[in-house]
Simulated scan of single mutants.
Amino acid sequence: MAEDVQARIKQLILRRRLTPGDPLPTETELVAMLDVSRNSVREALKALQAMRIVEIRHGFGTYVGALTLEPFVEGVAFRAAVRHLQGEPSLYELMEVREALEAGLIGTVARDLPAADLTVLKGLVQRMAEEARGGQVQSATDRAFHLALYRSLGNHLLSEVLDAFWAALRRVREDLADDRQDPQVTYRRHQEIVDALEAGDGHRAVAAMHRHFDGIRRRLTGK
């Protein structure tokens, strides 16, 4: 019953062309509209909230949620952490998926990277250099770099998926206390990517991206 009510609430959002932040009918209105019990509506809304499809603001009402990939990130990261502790190469596999996506796209980016995006990337690499001198490249800087890298492709879903895999890999490494990266190496690998992009050399950019992941690969395999 709850799954059916979830599906009907999602159809209501689509039918009314609601967007994130828009209010949904009240719980009482949904009960009457869907002709189901109050408990069924509450269960459905709680499940949809877990998926970030709706947001329940106690005392204010229910709204269309942010519709982010956060539940996906949490699921993938937790799956990888559990299987890693069972001796499976789940963390390595997660890294491979992210590498395949980024290395497969960087050549396209290199052919037509806007000057403004290149300026942003250069600024982020300069920040990495400063952070590396201080002993640690901040994860926020690394994340901003990889987000800026593919912005010119103009594909919002692609950006969200890439960021989701970045976040999942980072989260599971933090959960497993795997943070042994050399900040100077991190900085240099990103600088190599920017240098290749500035030269408009797609093959060099792909090679630089693979070298970037080689460092992660060595930490995961111990080789």
Rank of each mutant, 00 (worst) to 15 (best):
A115E: 13
R42A: 09
F72S: 09
L158A: 09
A168Y: 00
A77H: 05
V161R: 06
R111Y: 09
G65W: 01
L67K: 04
P71C: 01
A66G: 09
R79L: 14
L121G: 06
E96Q: 03
S90C: 07
A164G: 11
L157A: 11
G61T: 05
D112S: 13
H58T: 12
T108K: 13
A44K: 04
A80H: 05
A44P: 08
E93F: 03
S90Q: 07
L118E: 03
I106K: 00
A115T: 10
L94M: 13
A115I: 01
T108R: 15
I53Q: 12
A50E: 15
A116V: 10
G59D: 04
F60Y: 15
D142M: 12
N155I: 05
A116W: 09
T68W: 02
V54E: 06
G61K: 05
L105K: 02
A129H: 10
A140W: 00
L85A: 14
D112G: 04
E43R: 15
L105G: 02
A115S: 07
R83L: 15
L158G: 08
A115K: 12
Q136A: 15
I53H: 10
A168R: 02
R173V: 07
T119G: 13
H146N: 12
E96N: 10
A132S: 06
Q126G: 13
G87D: 06
Y150H: 04
S159F: 02
H156P: 08
Q86W: 13
D175Y: 11
F165L: 13
E131T: 01
R111T: 08
H58G: 11
L48Y: 06
